[in-house]
Amino acid sequence: MDNIVEIKGLNKRYDRKEALRNIDLSIEKGKVVGILGPNGSGKTTLIKLLMGLLHPNTGEIRIDGQSPGVHTKSVISYLPDRNPLYSWMSVKDAIQMFQEFYQDFDEKKAEGLLQFMKLDRTMKVSNMSKGMKEKLNLALVLSRRAKVYILDEPIAGVDPVARDQILDAIIDNYKEDSAMIITTHLVRDMENIFDQVVFLGDGEIILSGEAERLREDRNMQIDGLYKEIFG
């Protein structure tokens, strides 16, 4: 098995509060994994640990065989849950920044994705709607040739048209030799693109498995299961 991400016995506390407890998770190349849970369940903490932005209290994280650090950052393409671009930037500036920061940035790909998203190079971030910012950031993130793509709430708060474009872009950019980790609480809109789902509640994995297997075993869609667990 070709695990690109391996998490074992992960614990994270903030002061007294336990944000994550005993997380075990393996992700193979070529898989799209949905991390599902309500707000405050620990999704973003988990992502920040993978990104090396936070450090675990106990447990181990391996990405492409290494602990989070310089190497793992170079192989992860990350879409944060908040817009990381400066408001004075134009689309062109944002592309330039990505080009300077990331060796694996593919400008041709970015060109195609921006066209697909109907974003013009001269547009300014300050004039963009939430959906447009999300599309721009996703286009940039998917234009890297990374081993792991981490998308934190990619469709939260965007209109249905932008949502469809974002989903299409994610499906079109699926790669067999890399993994995608996507957090969301909008399960109904996204469940069809997941190979594997992880239900995260109160910092613990409540249930995880292959999405199709869960549908078969429980005789319902993942959205129904989500409502049953968190409803």
Partner: peptide
């Protein structure tokens, strides 16, 4: 996959 909006797998 694109038409039906599902994972290629």
């Amino acid at each position: 996959a694109t038409e039906l909006k599902v994972n290629p797998n």
